[in-house]
Design a protein around this nucleic acid. Structure first.
Lengths: 191, 191
DNA sequence: ACTGCCATGTAACTAGTTACATGATTGG
DNA sequence: CCAATCATGTAACTAGTTACATGGCAGT
């Protein structure tokens, strides 16, 4: 289903740029440092860029006029820079939200990859890897549960994504366990 | 220009290198072109690298003595290169399979990101995006189902991963639908 | 006749990481 | 007093993409 292509006031930016822009769309004036921490809260569904990457994105967004920078001089060396989304920035974000193509998630699942090549591995160790992964996924579920209270009153959309994340990790745990069970059956070993 | 093979220079390779090495571990001698097609079959859980990237990885693997290259001369066009995993390559792969750290999947979910910033979007359009995504995920499920017969007799591990993939996409469909439902409920009360 | 697949590769670029470096402020 | 946090940034690198260029061969 083809979407109508709009005129381009701004060249196509990578998704990560919109991630930063989107964080700024919550309205508060923030430093690059703040943004990095906020971005870490999206780790459940969007890989957190490195700190240097955040600063690079801010520089680019600013060059395109999508964010404003305000400098607060500091007594200690580096000045503090505060960023705020501009009207053009909001417009660009909305444009992306509405008209970007619906693309598949970019996924690099190293554990699934290891299972894929299981014919070269010790089955017992493979199961251990899967158990470790399931444990990690369980930790993500718990962390998301801890996050709920912060989202509940004011942030309905992040809340929806948190729920999505939970369903994702729950499914991952189930899938890992199913693979473990299949491996056990297949090798005829007792656990 | 004899490539002297050192005992254990096993430097940390990126996961994508092991993806290529792993494909070669199935034993057949293949071209870079073949590998690219094989890699596309892993798209359900591991992002397929570009063709140029495959060739780059093969070059590096060869430099490390993990693959052997055999050249078949061609008339009037570039020679054909056939690649085969070496003993050292198999050892490196097994080492990775057994001892690499269990890491989180690298995920960049642009649709979830758009939902996260839903406060800037038209709710109706947002639901449309989610419906498109669910439809795409359903297509993945179907494609995986079509893949089953090719895996069933001889490739038990890829089969396990295919099942994993199905459970993943089924969960994605459910999560997207849950989000759509929540948006519908929420849109009754204006905000 | 034409389309699509086979099969290679390079050049220029963009995205993103790691490691380093600075120095004030806050809290146990 | 020490460690962590705040807050910046650069340099060197690695990973990965897009676009181009070549040309034969098989099938409809």
């Amino acid at each position: 289903m083809a979407r109508q292509q709009q005129e381009k006031p701004v060249p196509a930016l990578p998704t990560t740029a919109y991630a930063v822009l989107g964080l700024l769309s919550f309205g508060t004036e923030v430093t690059g440092y703040d943004l990095r921490k906020w971005a870490m809260n999206m780790r459940f569904f969007y890989w957190s860029p490195a700190q240097s990457q955040i600063y690079a994105e801010l520089r680019r967004l600013r060059q395109h006029g999508l964010v404003d920078e305000r400098t607060e001089p500091q007594r200690g060396r580096p000045d503090k820079h505060l960023y705020k989304i501009t009207d053009a920035g909001l417009a660009a974000l909305r444009e992306w939200l509405h008209y970007a193509e619906v693309g598949p998630p970019l996924l690099k699942h190293s554990v699934a990859l290891r299972l894929f090549f299981g014919h070269q591995a010790d089955p017992e160790r493979l199961r251990e890897v899967l158990r470790d992964y399931a444990a990690w996924a369980q930790k993500q579920v718990d962390e998301l549960t801890d996050l709920y209270p912060q989202l509940l009153p004011d942030l309905p959309y992040p809340l929806l994504v948190a729920r999505w994340g939970q369903s994702y990790f729950v499914a991952e745990i189930a899938a890992a366990n199913a693979a473990i069970a299949a491996l056990e059956k297949q090798s005829g070993t007792t656990h």
